[in-house]
Design a protein around this nucleic acid. Sequence first.
RNA 1: GCCGGAGUGGCGGAAUUGGCAGACGCAGCGGAUUCAAAAUCCGCCGAGGUAACCCCUCGUGUGAGUUCGAGUCUCACCUCCGGCACCA
Length: 884
Amino acid sequence: MAYDHRVIEARWQGYWEQHETFRAVRHPGRPKLYVLDMFPYPSGHGLHVGHPEGYTATDIFTRKKRMQGYDVLHPMGWDAFGLPAEQHAINTGTHPRETTRKNIDHFRAQLKRLGFAYDWSREVNTTDTGYVRWTQWIFLQLFKRGLAFQGEVPVNWCPALGTVLANEEVIDGRSERGGHPVVRQPLRQWQLKITAYAERLAADLAGLDWPETKQKQVDWIGRSEGAEVTFRVADQEAELRVYTTRPDTLFGATYVVIAPDHPLTLELTTEAQRAEVTRYAEVAARKSDLERTALGKEKTGVFTGAYAINPVNDRRVPIYTADYVLGSYGTGAIMAVPAHDQRDFEFAQAFGLPIVQVVDTERSSAGQELTEALSEPGVAMGSGAFDGLSTEQAKKEITRWLVERGLGEAKVNYRLRDWVFSRQRYWGEPIPIYFPMETDGDPTQGAAYTIDYSRPIALGEEELPLTLPELEDYHPGDPQGPLAKALTWRFFQREGRWYARETNTMPQWAGSCWYYLRYLDPNNQEEIFSQEAYDAWMPVDLYMGGAEHAVLHLLYARFWHKVLFDCGVVKHPEPFQKLVHQGMILGQAYRYYVALEGGEGEETERPISGLSQELARDAESGELTFQGAPVEERWVSPAEVRAQGGKYLHPTLDVELMLVTEKMAKSRGNVVNPDEVVAEHGADALRAYEMFMGPLEQVKPWQTSGLLGVRRWLDRVHQLAQRGVSDEPADLETRRRVHRTIKKVGEDIDALRLNTAVSAMMTLTNHLTSLPQPPREAFEALVLILSPFAPHLAEELWEGLGHAPSVADAAWPSFDPALCEDDVVELAVQVLGKVRGRVQLAKDASESEATQAALADPAVVRSLAGRAPRQVIYRPGKIINLIV
RNA sequence: GCCGGAGUGGCGGAAUUGGCAGACGCAGCGGAUUCAAAAUCCGCCGAGGUAACCCCUCGUGUGAGUUCGAGUCUCACCUCCGGCACCA
């Protein structure tokens, strides 16, 4: 008998809202817990089934902790700046604020229908002026500390989006969002000096309870130790600094490569080579990352005509320019050691440059020509006084030798780049900076002007927030961004002089860098947050969110936090103690094929099994074919499939189907809409099912049939209550099961093993169902431990048991450890490691007792076949193994 | 290519320090209920052999190893997923 989730869920959501059940309040003497969900971007598509996964997990965790007496802060908000709303504004003229407000209302309603225990009074929205003010305030702190600066740097200009993208937002030469082509182009950009914090960002990871994300951040920061070495340029007054991690191979440097965009490249190029080098540099500058990687592995480059002097042996080595050397890393120039670096090796082969081995490694054999670089460590050779030293020693000794002669120094480099912080966009936080300018009239009326970008002036903190102007037209295109068109906003007079505001805005990452701090005190008008609020809740004890933010968001937020730490604004060096990533939820659909046969106009479709082995892929076009005929994929949703004897069949056609699990996509018909699930099966069923699917961190496929199974379980729990509880004391077996389940569910929630917690409760439910009437103590315990998972149903049942609401305020049940352990256990008896029998034994039975009991088992006797055990391995409570 | 993670029934998954592989759920099969169906309830449910019951053999991606005993530990390999990708 199914309960009516519509009535129950609406009723209790109303109750919680009315009673502010989940308002976060600190009580003296109680432990605090700050649990944070990554706040969503409120897109026009609404919630998808992936959102409730992480949110439910933290909801269960916090509800349980509340019941155990913790003061809990569990807030929610909106990362509401972003391109889609602006794109919508460009297309329709609707103000992004309008779109954003509508989307947020939709999201909030959806989240409330899921019954999450958020403190909604702390909701934050990154686009509120009251929030933007403090985002800008943090920017000013960065600016004052010299961590925000402008640079004319080659950036990733995306013509289609009319904006600049960070390196991280460019994937294979295309924009991460939209997949538009990206080209390199110099532009004035604000940047944040995250590299100044590289060392601390890497080092402080050590103390954090984070998953493999730590390693990703370490890799992203990419610390490397090496040396900078000075090469004199022959016949010129110039010097060239190179960076190397292998100073021990200096004797093997047979040429030098300088990046095409290095400031010295054209300067040291000889007249004869100038035209060719110039052309190469121009082509390289225009190349997008896509072209560079697609044209790929072939090394290109041009001889500059100049030579450098290798400082260790005074040899003249040619200087090339090549785009495999990046201007933005190290010194923008390298010494090439083809014998011991694969990239240099490939270049040397392509250009016929000498390859000189200077490290003897296990792979090298005398006189053999190298077929690839020997990059592993070994023993120095051909390196004069340094011969015989190990690679480690040689690095040290040669570096010391260089330092003593003023030819080089030890140097640490990072792969991490400074953060390009400007966006040429409307829907973002205005950067609170203005510039002096020259003008012969009123620039708001079209007078000519020149802006002096070299003298940025910070807005006063009391002038914040700097709000966005209203625009008629949101189209980008001007490299200065759409704000450049708002003349009366952009230009203003102060003490008779004209000034121009910065027209770039901040990237979407800005607001999400510090939102966890604003939740502490979201309505504070005077300060970013009060010290009391900070001390009450920080740091974040558990942070839950998608692994796609493992590097960028989490690195940027840690960076800002450390800056605020240095400013004395926050007291902890790290914001997020424990981090968990929920896994993605995939969709499932069943595939078959159709072969398109017959000519034009009279095509027929022949269905083919989704498991067919006879399909071939055309080598040229990549199209699927079946016996020469073109083939198309067709999809059937799980609800329509006929299952028969372990096979899946098409509902009408006689073909077998293949189950395919992949990312949800409209084209596959495998998208699950949470609103529909809630309406049809209830929020409690959705919540419990998403937890039951499997381990939280794992990628898992959505199976509607599995959801139905969970709903049936909730119905059985509800049915138990309908039967009426018995006030007779529970039998021992039932009490044991109850206490064990309380223990297991509690431990599982603490460890976020929510899938096994659900199955433990199912097992207990099955047992209680087998009794004529569920004993009150047993059923009440079940309702309590169920309440974090299925809070609406639990409230209803709790009230039905005669208790005053809310079950969320009830105490988490305790268990009796003695009842969780058996005194008599069933022990498996092995003979030669194979289970042959089972005996009932006291948990702490002695070895002789155990052996005796084992030898009394007829099946064991049979297996022994008259042989006497030579050795007995007995592990009390676990196993007894007889060796013959 | 490099770095991480994972491979267990028809499907999702369980097995907490090496100790009864497959908990729990889905699907499937059989039965009860029903005029019938849905819903619900009960039973069976890794493969093979034998078969009234019992019992035997094999079985956690592949191959080796350690151990009385391996899904779990070690080595090599294969496949899939995620991240990075000329960072000197």
